[in-house]
């Protein structure tokens, strides 16, 4: 008999998975807003304005879910400020450069005001609601290119950090390749463009809908390539079955992440697409399904480490 090697699971479960899904929607939506701002035109404005309402609520939801998982919300502060109990650490600010969780916490903290500015600016444009002082500042900032570019970079950071974070562990599947950060960015962008599709399906014109379809198709292609490279790597390393053949995550991964989040947009939104859901209002269905597919991806990748241990 050989003693077992016990790689313990960090027991990250539903609350954290949902938190990262919410953060992905917030950062992905913000990233797509940037692309629409720089690549689109005035005809996209109704959709762009409404998209601005999305990131902030999801960025609020994320720390709520994360702190719920911790059990004691005030402990969250130890991520940001050096606790008096950690006397070895210098300075009042807690930042461990070797820890992706530290980078991610700060990225989310700094990104949150950008989502608030987008929200307030959109609130004024869509609903006419103004808040003294805050709304004029928000409108000015939202029209500033430097502000938007910095916000884009932070959105990418928030999208990527959770993937890099699970890459920087010793867990099976998570740490086997270098691709988790790239995959998480790709699926965050997919969730952002799914949000854009839902909004464009309701208020967008045919031209905006076409742009959204184009981006959805492009993002799905990039995601498909990353997924294929990732799976090929896992196959070479012997951990492919932990995600592909596991009852815990396999069906959700193949049907949800591969089928719905990636293949469906390629087939229906591409230039050689099937003649289904071609009407602008039908983008709502496609967007909702892609969001569900991204959720399936989050679930499958997140719980694949447990599936690996259970093999």
């Amino acid at each position: 008999m050989t003693a077992s090697t016990y790689l313990l699971s960090p027991e990250w479960e539903w609350l954290i998975m949902l938190a990262l899904f919410a953060a992905g929607i917030a950062s992905g939506t913000y990233a797509i807003m940037g692309l629409m701002h720089f690549g689109g035109d005035e005809g996209d404005r109704p959709v762009l304005d409404r998209m601005g309402l999305v990131p902030m609520p999801f960025m609020l939801l994320t720390p709520i879910l994360l702190t719920l998982d911790l059990g004691q919300p005030l402990r969250f502060l130890n991520l940001l400020f050096t606790s008096p109990g950690a006397a070895e650490r210098p300075g009042p600010i807690m930042f461990n450069t070797a820890s992706p969780m530290s980078w991610g916490s700060w990225a989310m903290i700094v990104f949150a005001p950008f989502t608030l500015v987008a929200f307030l600016a959109s609130l004024e444009r869509v609903r006419g609601t103004t808040i003294p002082l805050l709304t004029p500042i928000s409108k000015a900032l939202q029209g500033n290119v430097i502000w938007l570019v910095v916000g884009e970079l932070l959105a990418l950071g928030v999208s990527a950090y959770s993937g890099v974070l699970i890459n920087v562990t010793n867990q099976g599947v998570w740490s086997d390749t270098y691709l988790m950060g790239g995959l998480f960015i790709a699926f965050s962008e997919l969730s952002g463009i799914a949000v854009a599709a839902i909004i464009a399906g309701r208020v967008g014109n045919a031209r905006t809908a076409e742009g959204v379809r184009n981006v959805l198709f492009g993002s799905a292609i990039v995601s498909a390539v990353l997924l294929a490279v990732w799976l090929a790597n896992l196959q070479a390393l012997g951990s492919f079955t932990a995600i592909a053949a596991s009852l815990l995550v396999g069906p959700v991964f193949w049907i949800g992440a591969v089928g719905v989040a990636v293949l469906l947009p390629i087939v229906t939104a591409g230039p050689f697409g099937l003649r289904v859901w071609q009407r602008t209002d039908q983008l709502v269905i496609l967007g909702a399904l892609v969001l569900l597919g991204v959720l399936a991806f989050r679930y499958a990748t997140f719980f694949s480490a447990i599936a690996f241990i259970q093999r």
């Binding site: 692309l35 629409m36 990418l156 990527a160 993937g163 960015i185 463009i193 981006v215």
Partner: peptide
């Protein structure tokens, strides 16, 4: 992650 972000950004801009 950075390379993926760059590819996705360029793809997205080109798509619009």
């Amino acid at each position: 992650a950075l390379i993926s972000a760059a590819v996705l950004g360029v793809t997205g801009l080109a798509a619009f």
